[in-house]
Design a protein around this nucleic acid. Structure first.
Lengths: 259, 259
DNA sequence: GCTGCGCATTTACATAGGTTACTCCTGATC
DNA sequence: GATCAGGAGTAACCTATGTAAATGCGCAGC
């Protein structure tokens, strides 16, 4: 949650996109512009999209959020995690489709991009608009993989697979070390994500610990994956759907502060 | 599979989009143009996307297809169904992301839209390009609902929910009656879609039949949903994510031939 | 009119995961 | 420093769903 202040918040997005495409000076300027103003949300606060159906988009600067739906019997299914560097709301909100909600899991800061700006970008900035398309396709791939996770893997595989995905997504935006990161999720959140009960998440987490796959301190919420290759193997994880290089360089940043 | 020949194949797409947006004469012409040539695929044949990474899109004119992924242990998870009127391949194929496959379940005919054409459309035709965005958002909503289905519903609810979704999606393109349609799916396909075993799909189908929720003749493959309201209730189904009006008019077409 | 194959169906049995209920810990509040 | 609430951890028990194996049926090929 506590970010090391970077020159401007734009870096995170530029870094992320640069894994796929290089933006021009001018395009980077545009992003900088957006990051000048921001909104913040508290833990557990709903991030409003409902009220304003005007189809703006949001850049997530820091913190974790979730997209989720509730089912009639009161259950909740978490659809996806929104992590720093993610962009959201730029397609769903346009239509009356998909009545899901977005909620902050930790304190969150976002930058708003008005609908007109998006249209302008699409019309005039090739690379940036391609980056948007890439982000959409990536989100699509992540949803697809979540479906496979839920449909065809057991609890152990689901958990391990998710923890690996989060590691690699966070690494892309320099929010994780080589093999560890801050995981601000309760077991209830994990359960609602993976279609399991809390009790079984607990059991499974214990098993992962006993198998020396992970270390997780419930106090500090620091997760360390002890053997990525072994865990990838047993969970059937293949990071290629995230569209990033293997093992992004761990950064000095990791040594100097919590992420 | 055997479609009543319509003037040109374009109708189906125009009808579908018209549920959201009205296309200009010229835009309708463009669609007509695409539908002049087509490719066909046999049952069980893979519909190639892999080989040509050139990011063309495809309009599905007739037949059923699936997007799926295989997991290391040999299992298969079906991500989504592609039905007549659907457009696919216009975002996934651009990138190296998401190594899923598309396969025909029945004989299928598609129309190809070259990448350049898509770009041209986005630049010059407001409504048509909005229709594309809408189609993307709708697909996103359907994936989201599939995640909820897999994560938070039991076998009975999953099956009923899916059968309702298919009914309503088919109705939008006049391929279903008020409450029945041709369902070319084996129980294995249903199992691979819903994250269940074949045996349990069989059990659950029987239960739906015994409860007088559905009628399904394995010979003719005709499915009839006997009480949509009751079934929607027990399965927690709410069609709003499909973005179409309730109960599209049943058509005369339904009376004169198989769909 | 056999033969074989794909698919639906059923039974018996095994197990992953759900449910309930309780304990323990820690940190916030009064 | 007592009380309370949220979260982790555990145990006992229950059930939805998976697995294995066998049967029957209809259709295609010979």
């Amino acid at each position: 949650m506590t970010d090391i202040p970077v020159s401007t918040g734009a870096d995170i997005f530029i870094t992320k996109f640069s894994s796929y495409i290089d933006l021009s000076e001018q395009e980077q300027q545009i992003i900088e512009e957006f990051t000048r103003s921001s909104m913040t949300f508290d833990e557990n606060q709903d991030i409003i999209l409902e009220s304003e159906k005007s189809s703006s988009a949001y850049l997530l600067q820091s913190g974790w959020a979730i997209r989720y739906k509730v089912v009639p019997d009161g259950g909740r299914q978490i659809i996806s995690f929104l992590l720093p560097g993610d962009i959201f709301g730029f397609q769903e909100s346009l239509f009356e489709l998909s009545d899901d909600s977005v909620q902050a899991l930790t304190p969150v800061t976002v930058h708003r991009i008005p609908a007109e700006k998006i249209a302008e970008i699409c019309d005039n900035y090739t690379n940036l608009s391609l980056a948007l398309t890439w982000a959409r396709a990536r989100e699509h791939a992540i949803l697809t993989e979540h479906i496979v996770r839920l449909g065809r893997r057991n609890a152990y595989e689901r958990l391990g697979h998710l923890l690996l995905e989060l590691l690699h997504r966070l690494q892309l935006v320099d929010k994780a070390g080589q093999s560890d990161y801050f995981l601000p999720l309760t077991q209830e959140v994990l359960a609602d994500t993976l279609g399991l009960s809390i009790v079984h998440v607990n059991r499974t987490l214990r098993k992962l610990r006993n198998d020396h796959m992970i270390e997780l301190d419930p106090k500090t919420r620091r997760l360390r994956i002890l053997d990525q290759e072994a865990l990838s193997d047993v969970t059937g994880y293949d990071q290629s759907y995230l569209g990033q290089k293997e093992q992004p360089a761990s950064s000095i940043q990791d040594a100097i502060g919590p992420k």
